[in-house]
Simulated scan of single mutants.
Amino acid sequence: MTTDSSVLSAFAPTGKLRASINLGNPILANKDTVTGEPVGVSIDLARELGKRLGLPVDLVVFDTAGKSVEAVGDERADIGFFAIDPVRGASIAFTAPYVLIEGFYMVRNDSPIQHNNEVDSANTRVAVGKGSAYDLFLSRELKHAEIIRAPSSPAVVQTFLEQELEVAAGVKQQLESDAAKTPGLRLLGERFMVIQQAMGLPKSRGNAAADYLRRFVEEMKASGFVADALQRHKIGGASVAPVS
């Protein structure tokens, strides 16, 4: 993959590649327990892209997907790692997905809800992470249930418990982790969506930069880079997206 000066300037008008990192999705990024520094698949991809472009990488860290998206949409960051969604696509050019993550519902053990199609009821309140991919998706899909927005994805189960809501929605891995700490909770038996995690950059940066980023993601999938990163960071509940 060759890079000319116009592509470099499109990616990094400040001279640094500013990568928007969302710590609200543990499949993509976490804080190292020893150093406190961001680590994860998205950080590995950001640094590899910077290496390919010959640019220093500046990690711009946020605690929610919504804030991370806004930073790229407002051009306070140059690239980001998000779930593909048409609302976000108004200002962001997405690659094909590099990772697929499952979205699940969780309820209490004594809940009468057994299947996904029972969630969309007028008597049901569903906790979601504000601005998350599943918030955007469920805001379109649920016609009768009330959506209650937690401040962030990691706060969904806490909100669900504190407000005595009927359902919590989120990334399967996050819900399973929270359920392991709190007796009396169970996940429903099937996913309600597949979250397609992709890279993206502001549409204003032009087609050449967007095409470069798309080709980069395809190479990272095909070469095994993404699979290796998932294994290295001990990430379960996610799979490498097919090469386009």
Rank of each mutant, 00 (worst) to 15 (best):
S153C: 09
Y212R: 08
D74G: 01
K67F: 04
A209N: 09
S111E: 10
F62I: 04
I43D: 12
G200L: 12
R149Y: 07
G54S: 10
S42R: 02
I113G: 09
N30R: 15
G224R: 00
A71N: 11
P97M: 05
V156R: 09
V243E: 12
R108N: 13
L142D: 07
P26G: 09
G131T: 12
H233V: 12
K130M: 12
D58V: 02
R125F: 05
L17N: 03
A127W: 06
G24R: 04
V39K: 10
E219F: 00
L49F: 13
F94Q: 11
I147S: 01
A227M: 02
D135S: 10
D44A: 04
I195T: 02
G237T: 03
P154A: 10
E166Y: 00
I148E: 14
E70W: 12
L59P: 09
E162K: 07
L188G: 02
L213P: 01
G80P: 04
H144F: 08
E164P: 02
G236H: 08
P97C: 03
V87S: 11
A10M: 12
V240C: 03
M106P: 07
K234Y: 02
G36E: 14
E141L: 14
K51W: 01
V7A: 03
V157H: 02
F192N: 11
F216Q: 11
S204K: 08
M220Y: 01
A241N: 10
A145M: 08
N116M: 09
Y98R: 03
R125A: 04
V60M: 06
G36H: 02
V217G: 08
G189F: 04
L136G: 13
N109Q: 15
S121I: 00
D228E: 15
F82W: 12
H233P: 11
D228T: 13
D135Q: 05
S244H: 05
E162C: 00
Q231D: 13
G103F: 06
M193H: 01
N116I: 11
D63Q: 13
E176P: 04
G236L: 06
A12G: 06
A168R: 02
E37M: 13
P97K: 02
R191W: 01
H115C: 00
R215P: 02
F94R: 06
T14W: 05
G236I: 08
V57S: 06
A83Q: 13
E48R: 11
Y212F: 15
S223R: 00
I27E: 14
K234Q: 14
L53T: 02
G66H: 11
P56I: 06
E218P: 00
V7W: 04
G189L: 06
I27H: 09
G54M: 11
I113F: 14
V156T: 15
A241C: 08
V39H: 01
F192C: 08
